[in-house]
Computed example of a mutant assay.
Amino acid sequence: MDLRLDGLTVTIDGAELVRDLSLDVADGAVVGLIGPNGSGKSTTLRCVYRALRPSGGTVHVGGDDLATLSRRDGARRVAALTQQGGSDLDFTVAEVVALGRAPHQRGNEPLTARERRLCEDAMRRLDLLHLAGRGVLSLSGGERQRVLVARALVQEPRVLVLDEPTNHLDVRHQLELLGLLRGAGLTVLVVLHDLNLAAAVCDRIGVLDGGRLVAVGAPADVLSEALVRDVFGVAATVVAHPLTGAPQLLYTVTATTPEGPPT
Protein backbone atom coordinates (compact mmCIF):
# COMPACT_ATOMS: atom_id res chain seq x y z
CA MET A 1 0.00 0.00 0.00
CA ASP A 2 1.53 3.29 -1.05
CA LEU A 3 1.89 6.41 1.09
CA ARG A 4 1.74 9.92 -0.38
CA LEU A 5 2.34 13.24 1.31
CA ASP A 6 0.92 16.06 -0.80
CA GLY A 7 1.83 19.65 0.06
CA LEU A 8 2.09 18.91 3.78
CA THR A 9 2.40 22.08 5.86
CA VAL A 10 2.46 22.38 9.66
CA THR A 11 2.30 25.75 11.42
CA ILE A 12 2.25 25.92 15.23
CA ASP A 13 2.15 29.17 17.20
CA GLY A 14 3.12 31.09 14.08
CA ALA A 15 6.17 28.92 13.36
CA GLU A 16 6.13 26.96 10.10
CA LEU A 17 7.66 23.61 11.08
CA VAL A 18 7.00 21.83 7.77
CA ARG A 19 6.51 23.69 4.51
CA ASP A 20 4.78 22.34 1.39
CA LEU A 21 6.30 18.86 1.67
CA SER A 22 5.40 16.35 -1.04
CA LEU A 23 6.82 12.82 -0.93
CA ASP A 24 5.80 9.46 -2.40
CA VAL A 25 6.59 6.15 -0.71
CA ALA A 26 5.84 3.29 -3.10
CA ASP A 27 4.18 0.07 -1.99
CA GLY A 28 6.80 -2.05 -0.21
CA ALA A 29 9.53 0.61 -0.35
CA VAL A 30 11.68 1.81 2.54
CA VAL A 31 12.12 5.59 2.50
CA GLY A 32 14.21 7.41 5.08
CA LEU A 33 13.93 10.97 6.32
CA ILE A 34 17.17 12.60 7.41
CA GLY A 35 18.09 16.11 8.46
CA PRO A 36 19.48 18.12 11.37
CA ASN A 37 17.63 18.55 14.64
CA GLY A 38 14.54 20.70 14.24
CA SER A 39 14.26 20.15 10.50
CA GLY A 40 10.69 18.78 10.65
CA LYS A 41 11.26 15.02 10.49
CA SER A 42 9.30 13.99 13.58
CA THR A 43 6.60 16.58 12.84
CA THR A 44 6.11 15.01 9.43
CA LEU A 45 5.74 11.53 10.93
CA ARG A 46 3.25 12.79 13.50
CA CYS A 47 0.98 13.84 10.64
CA VAL A 48 1.21 10.34 9.15
CA TYR A 49 0.21 8.55 12.35
CA ARG A 50 -2.39 11.22 13.12
CA ALA A 51 -0.92 12.63 16.33
CA LEU A 52 -0.96 16.01 14.60
CA ARG A 53 -3.34 17.57 12.11
CA PRO A 54 -1.50 19.37 9.30
CA SER A 55 -2.26 23.02 8.66
CA GLY A 56 -2.34 22.29 4.95
CA GLY A 57 -1.93 19.43 2.51
CA THR A 58 -2.97 15.80 2.81
CA VAL A 59 -1.69 12.35 3.69
CA HIS A 60 -2.94 9.56 1.42
CA VAL A 61 -2.64 5.86 2.27
CA GLY A 62 -3.58 3.44 -0.47
CA GLY A 63 -5.17 6.31 -2.38
CA ASP A 64 -7.46 7.34 0.51
CA ASP A 65 -7.15 10.61 2.40
CA LEU A 66 -6.10 9.48 5.88
CA ALA A 67 -8.20 12.22 7.47
CA THR A 68 -11.38 10.63 6.09
CA LEU A 69 -10.74 7.23 7.71
CA SER A 70 -11.96 6.26 11.16
CA ARG A 71 -9.32 5.90 13.86
CA ARG A 72 -9.76 2.13 13.79
CA ASP A 73 -9.40 1.90 10.01
CA GLY A 74 -6.41 4.23 10.08
CA ALA A 75 -4.72 2.08 12.75
CA ARG A 76 -5.30 -1.02 10.64
CA ARG A 77 -3.34 0.61 7.83
CA VAL A 78 -0.66 2.57 9.68
CA ALA A 79 1.40 1.55 12.71
CA ALA A 80 3.92 3.83 14.38
CA LEU A 81 6.96 3.58 16.57
CA THR A 82 7.44 6.99 18.16
CA GLN A 83 10.11 8.53 20.34
CA GLN A 84 7.58 8.71 23.19
CA GLY A 85 6.26 5.18 22.87
CA GLY A 86 6.95 4.01 26.40
CA SER A 87 4.58 3.29 29.27
CA ASP A 88 4.64 3.91 33.01
CA LEU A 89 2.55 0.76 33.57
CA ASP A 90 4.49 -2.41 34.24
CA PHE A 91 2.78 -4.71 31.75
CA THR A 92 4.65 -7.82 30.74
CA VAL A 93 6.40 -7.94 27.38
CA ALA A 94 3.78 -10.39 26.08
CA GLU A 95 0.95 -8.07 27.18
CA VAL A 96 2.47 -5.02 25.49
CA VAL A 97 3.03 -6.92 22.25
CA ALA A 98 -0.56 -8.17 22.32
CA LEU A 99 -1.80 -4.57 22.50
CA GLY A 100 -0.92 -4.36 18.81
CA ARG A 101 -4.09 -6.35 18.10
CA ALA A 102 -6.36 -3.66 19.59
CA PRO A 103 -7.42 -2.13 16.21
CA HIS A 104 -8.64 -5.57 15.11
CA GLN A 105 -10.61 -6.45 18.25
CA ARG A 106 -13.96 -5.55 19.75
CA GLY A 107 -14.09 -4.90 23.47
CA ASN A 108 -12.06 -7.22 25.68
CA GLU A 109 -12.34 -10.33 23.56
CA PRO A 110 -9.42 -12.74 24.03
CA LEU A 111 -6.77 -13.30 21.40
CA THR A 112 -7.51 -16.00 18.88
CA ALA A 113 -5.09 -18.87 18.32
CA ARG A 114 -3.86 -17.10 15.16
CA GLU A 115 -3.26 -13.87 17.09
CA ARG A 116 -1.33 -15.69 19.80
CA ARG A 117 0.90 -17.24 17.12
CA LEU A 118 1.33 -13.80 15.55
CA CYS A 119 2.51 -12.35 18.88
CA GLU A 120 4.86 -15.26 19.48
CA ASP A 121 6.34 -14.92 16.01
CA ALA A 122 6.91 -11.18 16.46
CA MET A 123 8.66 -11.75 19.79
CA ARG A 124 10.81 -14.45 18.21
CA ARG A 125 11.81 -12.17 15.32
CA LEU A 126 12.77 -9.40 17.76
CA ASP A 127 14.67 -11.75 20.12
CA LEU A 128 12.13 -11.28 22.92
CA LEU A 129 10.68 -14.70 23.66
CA HIS A 130 12.94 -15.18 26.69
CA LEU A 131 11.59 -11.88 28.08
CA ALA A 132 7.87 -12.55 27.47
CA GLY A 133 7.00 -12.76 31.17
CA ARG A 134 9.16 -9.83 32.28
CA GLY A 135 7.69 -6.45 33.18
CA VAL A 136 8.62 -3.82 30.59
CA LEU A 137 9.79 -1.40 33.29
CA SER A 138 12.53 -3.86 34.22
CA LEU A 139 13.97 -3.84 30.70
CA SER A 140 16.79 -1.82 29.22
CA GLY A 141 16.02 0.97 26.76
CA GLY A 142 17.03 -1.21 23.84
CA GLU A 143 14.88 -4.11 24.99
CA ARG A 144 11.87 -1.83 25.37
CA GLN A 145 12.46 -0.48 21.88
CA ARG A 146 12.32 -3.99 20.44
CA VAL A 147 9.09 -4.66 22.36
CA LEU A 148 7.48 -1.64 20.72
CA VAL A 149 8.61 -2.75 17.26
CA ALA A 150 7.07 -6.18 17.92
CA ARG A 151 3.82 -4.52 18.99
CA ALA A 152 3.77 -2.53 15.74
CA LEU A 153 4.31 -5.66 13.65
CA VAL A 154 1.52 -7.51 15.48
CA GLN A 155 -0.79 -4.70 14.40
CA GLU A 156 -0.40 -6.07 10.84
CA PRO A 157 -0.26 -2.63 9.24
CA ARG A 158 0.30 -1.97 5.57
CA VAL A 159 2.39 1.13 6.35
CA LEU A 160 4.95 1.40 9.14
CA VAL A 161 6.37 4.74 10.33
CA LEU A 162 9.29 4.78 12.75
CA ASP A 163 10.96 7.70 14.48
CA GLU A 164 14.60 6.90 15.23
CA PRO A 165 13.95 3.17 15.81
CA THR A 166 17.63 2.35 16.38
CA ASN A 167 17.84 4.52 19.50
CA HIS A 168 19.19 2.54 22.48
CA LEU A 169 19.91 -0.54 20.34
CA ASP A 170 23.34 -2.16 20.22
CA VAL A 171 24.97 -2.72 16.85
CA ARG A 172 23.67 -6.27 16.44
CA HIS A 173 20.07 -5.32 17.13
CA GLN A 174 20.32 -2.20 14.96
CA LEU A 175 21.32 -4.31 12.00
CA GLU A 176 18.74 -7.01 12.76
CA LEU A 177 15.96 -4.44 13.03
CA LEU A 178 16.88 -2.72 9.79
CA GLY A 179 17.14 -6.08 8.04
CA LEU A 180 13.68 -6.89 9.36
CA LEU A 181 12.32 -3.65 7.90
CA ARG A 182 13.85 -4.52 4.54
CA GLY A 183 12.29 -7.96 4.50
CA ALA A 184 8.89 -7.27 6.04
CA GLY A 185 7.15 -6.40 2.76
CA LEU A 186 5.69 -3.25 4.33
CA THR A 187 5.71 0.32 3.12
CA VAL A 188 8.13 2.03 5.52
CA LEU A 189 8.82 5.69 6.31
CA VAL A 190 11.61 5.95 8.86
CA VAL A 191 13.53 8.79 10.50
CA LEU A 192 17.20 7.96 11.01
CA HIS A 193 20.04 10.08 12.36
CA ASP A 194 22.77 7.65 11.32
CA LEU A 195 23.33 8.48 7.65
CA ASN A 196 25.29 5.31 7.03
CA LEU A 197 22.44 3.15 8.32
CA ALA A 198 20.04 5.16 6.17
CA ALA A 199 22.19 4.54 3.11
CA ALA A 200 22.34 0.82 3.88
CA VAL A 201 18.62 0.18 4.38
CA CYS A 202 16.65 2.78 2.41
CA ASP A 203 15.53 2.60 -1.20
CA ARG A 204 15.23 6.38 -1.23
CA ILE A 205 16.17 9.16 1.15
CA GLY A 206 14.45 12.50 1.70
CA VAL A 207 16.50 15.32 3.21
CA LEU A 208 14.73 17.94 5.33
CA ASP A 209 16.24 21.28 6.24
CA GLY A 210 14.28 24.07 7.87
CA GLY A 211 11.00 22.25 7.26
CA ARG A 212 11.60 21.93 3.53
CA LEU A 213 12.39 18.84 1.48
CA VAL A 214 15.68 19.89 -0.12
CA ALA A 215 16.64 16.60 -1.78
CA VAL A 216 15.11 13.19 -2.46
CA GLY A 217 16.37 10.17 -4.36
CA ALA A 218 18.50 7.05 -4.11
CA PRO A 219 21.13 7.18 -1.35
CA ALA A 220 23.99 7.27 -3.86
CA ASP A 221 22.40 10.28 -5.56
CA VAL A 222 21.53 12.20 -2.39
CA LEU A 223 24.39 11.64 0.04
CA SER A 224 27.04 13.84 -1.51
CA GLU A 225 29.85 15.58 0.33
CA ALA A 226 28.37 18.94 -0.64
CA LEU A 227 24.92 18.12 0.74
CA VAL A 228 26.30 16.82 4.02
CA ARG A 229 28.37 19.99 4.37
CA ASP A 230 25.54 22.36 3.46
CA VAL A 231 22.74 20.67 5.43
CA PHE A 232 24.55 19.18 8.43
CA GLY A 233 27.51 21.53 8.61
CA VAL A 234 30.13 18.79 8.77
CA ALA A 235 32.95 17.64 6.54
CA ALA A 236 32.70 14.10 5.23
CA THR A 237 34.21 11.90 2.56
CA VAL A 238 31.85 9.57 0.70
CA VAL A 239 33.15 6.10 -0.13
CA ALA A 240 31.46 2.97 -1.46
CA HIS A 241 30.90 0.09 0.95
CA PRO A 242 33.30 -2.66 -0.18
CA LEU A 243 30.61 -5.37 -0.10
CA THR A 244 27.33 -3.63 -0.96
CA GLY A 245 28.47 -0.55 -2.84
CA ALA A 246 26.19 1.64 -0.71
CA PRO A 247 27.59 5.10 0.04
CA GLN A 248 29.28 5.42 3.41
CA LEU A 249 30.35 8.64 5.07
CA LEU A 250 33.71 9.09 6.76
CA TYR A 251 33.49 12.15 8.98
CA THR A 252 36.26 14.56 9.86
CA VAL A 253 36.35 15.35 13.56
CA THR A 254 37.43 18.89 14.39
CA ALA A 255 38.21 20.49 17.71
CA THR A 256 35.73 22.97 19.18
CA THR A 257 36.10 25.64 21.81
CA PRO A 258 33.47 26.90 24.27
CA GLU A 259 33.74 30.39 22.76
CA GLY A 260 33.36 29.65 19.11
CA PRO A 261 33.17 27.39 16.07
CA PRO A 262 35.53 24.51 15.19
CA THR A 263 39.18 25.38 14.99
Rank of each mutant, 00 (worst) to 15 (best):
L118E: 14
F91S: 04
G135N: 12
A113T: 13
A113E: 15
V149K: 04
D127K: 01
R117I: 06
S140D: 07
L128Q: 04
C119W: 02
T112N: 11
Q83D: 02
V97D: 00
G86Q: 08
R106P: 01
C119T: 03
G142A: 09
L137C: 14
L131D: 01
T92H: 12
G86V: 04
M123T: 01
L129P: 04
E95W: 09
R124F: 09
G86I: 03
L99P: 00
V147I: 11
M123C: 04
L139E: 02
A113D: 10
D90T: 10
D90G: 12
L126S: 05
L111I: 10
E109H: 04
R146D: 02
G86D: 12
V97I: 05
G85Q: 06
A94G: 04
T92R: 10
S87R: 09
L139G: 03
V97T: 01
D88Y: 06
A98M: 10
V96D: 13
T92E: 15
A102T: 14
E120S: 12
V93N: 02
G141A: 14
M123E: 05
G85V: 08
V96L: 12
V96H: 05
L99C: 15
L89V: 13
G85K: 05
V96R: 01
S138L: 13
V136H: 01
C119I: 03
A122T: 02
L99M: 15
H104S: 09
V93T: 01
L126H: 04
V149P: 02
V97C: 05
G133H: 10
L118G: 05
R134Y: 05
Q105L: 15
L139I: 10
A150P: 01
M123P: 01
Q105D: 13
D127T: 06
D88F: 13
D121M: 10
C119S: 08
D127G: 03
E109T: 11
A113L: 06
V93Q: 00
Q84K: 12
D127R: 04
G135V: 12
L118T: 10
N108Q: 11
S87A: 11
R114E: 15
F91V: 03
R124I: 08
L131R: 01
L118M: 14
F91N: 04
E109I: 02
R134A: 15
V93L: 03
G142E: 13
T92G: 11
D121Q: 12
E95R: 14
A94T: 08
R124S: 06
E109K: 06
Q105P: 05
A102Y: 13
V96T: 10
Q145A: 11
V149H: 05
L131F: 05
L148H: 12
G107M: 00
L139H: 13
L137A: 13
S140W: 07
R125D: 15
L131N: 02
A102Q: 10
L137S: 14
R146G: 00
A94V: 11
P110I: 03
D90Y: 11
E109G: 08
Q83R: 01
S140M: 08
V136I: 13
R117C: 07
H130G: 00
R116F: 02
G100P: 00
R124A: 11
D90I: 11
D88A: 15
V147W: 02
N108L: 09
V97F: 04
Q84S: 09
E143G: 07
L129T: 15
